[in-house]
Design a protein around this nucleic acid. Sequence first.
DNA 1: GCAAAAGTGTTTGACATACACCCATGT
DNA 2: ACATGGGTGTATGTCAAACACTTTTGC
Lengths: 243, 243
Amino acid sequence: MIQTDVSGLHQGSAMLDAPGADALTDRPAGFPAVDIRIALFSVENGALRVALVRHGSGYGLPRGVPRATVNLDAEARRILRDDTGHIDQYVEQLYTLGVDSERTWTVVISYLALVAPDGPGIDAGGCEWRLVAEPPLTEADQMVLDYALLRLRAKIGYTTIAFRLLPPMFTLRELQDAYEAILGHPVDKRNFRRRVAAAAPIEATGERRRDGSHRPAELYRYHGDRSTETYLTPPWAADAERG
Amino acid sequence: MIQTDVSGLHQGSAMLDAPGADALTDRPAGFPAVDIRIALFSVENGALRVALVRHGSGYGLPRGVPRATVNLDAEARRILRDDTGHIDQYVEQLYTLGVDSERTWTVVISYLALVAPDGPGIDAGGCEWRLVAEPPLTEADQMVLDYALLRLRAKIGYTTIAFRLLPPMFTLRELQDAYEAILGHPVDKRNFRRRVAAAAPIEATGERRRDGSHRPAELYRYHGDRSTETYLTPPWAADAERG
DNA sequence: GCAAAAGTGTTTGACATACACCCATGT
DNA sequence: ACATGGGTGTATGTCAAACACTTTTGC
C-alpha cells in the first residue's frame, strides 16, 4: 500500500503567489487580520456538496473573524452557525496560510466541517450547497477547499468521521453512498460491510425502512465516542490518494 | 492494525484553558498578535532532542513574529534560522491555537522542524538541545511540543522524513537508531532493513565506515524527492500511537 | 412472475511478524 | 581466539481483495 503525503500542502509549493506583495508591507509585522474559513461538506443523495455563502458580488466559503478566545475551534463553530445556520457535527482545523487580499495581509485559519443533511432539503441557513467540482472561487478559497477535500478523502479511510455526515439512523447503503461520494469511486459492498461491522461501533436497530418495490433495508445507529474518532478501513482511500 | 486519530488535538479537549480570559477582551477581534513557534528536533547519538532558546528568565521553543508575507512556512524557516542558527531539513505546519499570555491574545502557529546533526556537536546557534522528556515549559510550549512529537512519531511510520534527521551519508544502523529514538522502542533489524530497502529510495555507496573492533558498516545515500515524502513502514508507529 | 435493491461467504494473495546464525574487523 | 556490531532468509498468520447468488418486497 502506497500513500502520498496528505500534508503536502504545507511544503509551500502550493502556496499562494503574492500578486500585490508590496501592499503587504503596509501592516505591521505580527498584527495581520485573522480570519477563519471553513469548508463545510454534506452528502445529499449520493453527491458531495460544499456550503457557499454570498460575499458581496459572488459566493465564497463561510468565514468570519474570531473573537479573542483561546479556543479557535469553538470560534469556528460559532462562525459556521452564524454564517450558514448549520450546527456542525464535526470540525477539524486544517492549516493556516497567509493571504494577500484587498491590500490587506490576512492570516487565514482554515477548517473542515461536516453536517448531516437535516430535514427534506439541506438548505436551512442562508447558504447554497454546490457540487464540489463546480464553483469558481477565489484562489484562497479554492486552496482551502482542495485541501479540505484531500484531508476528508484520506481521513474517511481510517476514522469514523463519515458517520458525521449521516442522520442518527441510517442504512448501510446510505453509509456506502457517502463513502463513494467522497472517494469518487465505487467500493465493494461485501467488503465494505465486513469492515464497517468490524471497525465501527454500530448496532442494528431492528427497524427497517421501506422505500421502493424491493426488500427494505435495516436501520443502524452509530455509537461512537465523539472525542475519539476511531480507526476504520484504510485501503479504499489509497486509490483516492494516489490520484 | 489500529490507529488512533493523530489530529485529536484539534478536537478542543486538549485546548488551553483561559485562566485570564477577561484580559482577552483588551484587543480588538481579528487583530491578535501572531507568532510562530517551532518544535525543532534532532537525533544525537541515539537520543531525540528538542532545541530550546533563552527567553528572558527561562527557556522555550524557538519563536518569532512573522513578517507580512503570504508564505508562512518560509517565515518559519527564517525565524528558525535567526533564532537557532540551524537550517532546517524539513518544516511542517502543525496547527494554530489561541493563547492568552501576558495579558495579550496571541494566535500561535506551530511548526515541526527537523535538522541533521551538523559537525561534532549539534550546538551551532544560540540554542540548547534538551531531551524531549526533560524540560519544564510553558503550557503553550508544552502543547506544541507534545503535538509535534505525536505527529513526528506517527509520520515517521509512513513517510521518509526520518532521512531529514541524518547526514547525507549514513549507515542503516544510524537510521534505525533514529527510528528507535523517536518511537521509543526497539525494532527488528531484519524487518527494518527489508522495509527500508523496499519503500525508500536509498542506494549503497560502496564506501564503508570503520568505527570499532568489528565489521565496518556500509554507507547509504538517500535519493528522495524533497517535495514528495513517500510511504514507509506503518506498523511500528502503531505502538507509539496507541500510547 | 418480474424488477430492484438488500443481504451474505469463500478463496487468494500480499504483507507484517517473529526469529537465529554467519561475517568482518580490532585487539 | 574472542568480542563486537554488521549483515542476511524463512515460515507463519492476518487481513484486504475479488467475486455471484439468494432474499424480500412492490407492482
